Amino acid sequence: MGLDTMLSGGLIENSICALVGTYGTGKTMLALQFAYEGLSRGEKVIYISLEEREEHLRATMAQKGWDPGAFGDRFYLLKLDPTDFNLAINSIKNELPALIESTGASRVVIDPISLFEGLFEDESERRREMFRFVEVMRDEACTLVLTSETRPGNPEESRYGIIEYLADTVILLRYIRSPGLTEVHLVIEVVKMRRSAHSREIKPFEILQDGILVHSEASLF
């Protein structure tokens, strides 16, 4: 798809990618598309949701014509309650690496990681725990996608401003208005991608019935 063109072929295997955007910009849709493409290639995928209920995610996939049930035990869709601090912390920090190793999953999604970050009230503790978590995940043979809401008042930064520094790739999704303020467009930008000569252009994209389409050859206006 067009995003792969912007990424010079796609995400680097076994890297960590952050999808950052405000509400309604398609973060979850793009994460689901990443998961589905892996499943279609015969890979095993773990999708951890801290926000959407499992049945809602499956319904969204069905609306796109994707049948997660067709992949059997290659697709692990888990819903965690972020209000249960101990369960959420333990599941992501301690149980996820073991689950990856036992299932052989090559793609993992946490949607959104910002809710996990918000479990830590102290900023220094948040940074320390996120750094430790990312370091643990780097030892796993999987490509990790983390979604994050943006910081209030700043549509170009993740809610806590941490994952941009920890991730290998940062993809920003946001709205822009046309010069005449008559239209609102969804745009995507590869802000950062280690070990790759990625595109630095801002491109428009659409959320379609069967997924997200990035117009990598188009100009904004």
Results as ranks from 00 to 15, higher is better:
3 L>N: 11
5 T>A: 10
5 T>L: 01
7 L>N: 08
8 S>P: 01
10 G>L: 02
13 E>I: 09
13 E>K: 13
14 N>A: 12
14 N>P: 04
16 I>Y: 00
17 C>G: 06
19 L>Q: 07
19 L>P: 02
20 V>L: 08
21 G>A: 11
21 G>Q: 08
23 Y>R: 12
25 T>N: 12
25 T>Y: 05
25 T>Q: 05
27 K>V: 07
28 T>Q: 01
31 A>P: 14
36 Y>Q: 13
36 Y>N: 07
36 Y>I: 07
42 G>W: 04
42 G>I: 02
42 G>T: 06
43 E>P: 06
43 E>A: 09
48 I>P: 09
49 S>Y: 08
51 E>T: 06
52 E>L: 07
54 E>N: 11
55 E>H: 13
59 A>N: 14
62 A>G: 01
66 W>A: 04
67 D>P: 03
72 G>R: 05
72 G>Q: 10
72 G>K: 07
74 R>M: 01
78 L>F: 11
78 L>N: 03
79 K>T: 12
80 L>T: 11
81 D>S: 13
82 P>H: 07
85 F>M: 11
86 N>T: 07
87 L>P: 00
88 A>C: 15
91 S>W: 06
96 L>P: 10
99 L>P: 10
100 I>P: 06
103 T>F: 05
104 G>R: 10
104 G>H: 09
105 A>H: 04
110 I>H: 09
111 D>G: 10
114 S>F: 02
115 L>Y: 02
116 F>A: 05
119 L>T: 03
119 L>S: 04
121 E>D: 13
121 E>W: 01
123 E>S: 15
125 E>D: 08
133 F>E: 06
135 E>C: 01
136 V>G: 06
136 V>K: 14
139 D>T: 13
141 A>N: 14
142 C>E: 01
142 C>N: 12
148 S>Y: 01
148 S>Q: 06
150 T>R: 05
151 R>Q: 15
152 P>W: 03
152 P>K: 09
153 G>C: 11
155 P>W: 06
155 P>G: 11
155 P>N: 08
158 S>P: 10
158 S>C: 10
161 G>W: 08
161 G>M: 05
163 I>N: 12
163 I>W: 03
165 Y>S: 08
166 L>D: 09
169 T>F: 03
172 L>M: 15
173 L>M: 15
177 R>P: 00
177 R>I: 07
179 P>Q: 09
180 G>C: 05
186 L>D: 04
186 L>P: 01
186 L>T: 10
190 V>C: 02
194 R>W: 08
196 S>W: 00
197 A>Q: 13
197 A>W: 03
199 S>V: 06
201 E>V: 03
202 I>D: 02
206 E>R: 13
206 E>G: 00
209 Q>L: 14
210 D>P: 00
213 L>F: 09
213 L>N: 04
213 L>I: 05
216 S>W: 05
